[in-house]
Amino acid sequence: MNIGGSGFAALFYKELLRFWRVAFQTVAAPVLTALLYLLIFSHVLEADRQVYGVPYTSFLVPGLVMMAVLQNAFANSSSSLIQSKVTGSILFVLLPPISYAAFFWAFVAAAAIRGLVVGLGVWLVTLPFVPVAPLQPWWVLLFALLGGAILGALGVIAGIWADKFDQLAAFQNFLVLPLTMLSGVFYSIHSLPTFWQAVSHYNPVFYMIDGFRHGFFGISDVAPEQSLAVVAACFAGLALLTLALLKRGWKLRT
């Protein structure tokens, strides 16, 4: 796929600038929310509770970081698209000779970057309360990037599909939120009944979070290589689908 000179750099830069201009809403607000989660959970739960032999609050931090990465990656591409569709300024990217592949990668890359920036913010603000550092930073970065890219691509689909803001909210509330909440952000799936453990294995977000947490503690519910394979396959599938939709001009070109 030829990206150079196809409008990728310009669109990527524009998408970064867009969320950075309103960083208070797009970065500071989700960081604060994650910090509140951590403070409340650690307050209501007993101090000596442990998962994988690490204190629960430490176990919680990577989950919160990854949740922030995923939700903000989704929010970035989906809200940028719906906003420009509703205002009509989507024209400005539909008129120039931007290839559909460049369009896809620009939105996905910017979404992943927003996810990483917010994730980093969450980790930094929780550090004074619950100091946790990754044992294997490469796993952490890899899963954060891939997870952000997957949710970014999902956000592209949702943003193009939705005609109104409340349709997008439905997509977020009935798909993205349950998938992330029920993926083991707040618990190890080994603590679940066997049936629900089995169900969790069909949730791709479970592998993203499990692999990500492996980077922190070196322990996980499934092997990180297996998680990586699932997550990478997921991204490939979603990327192919999104590219096919964009190539057809689905809902963007009448």
């Binding site: 669109l11 867009r18 201009r21 009509g88 120039p96 931007i98």
Partner: peptide, 23 residues
């Protein structure tokens, strides 16, 4: 025909970004 604009940017930024879309 429709009066559309991107509310995040200034006039010059808008024109620079539009130029960049064309390489």
């Amino acid at each position: 025909q429709e009066l559309v604009f991107d509310p995040f940017f200034t006039v010059r930024e808008t024109l620079r970004i539009q130029s960049a879309y064309f390489g």
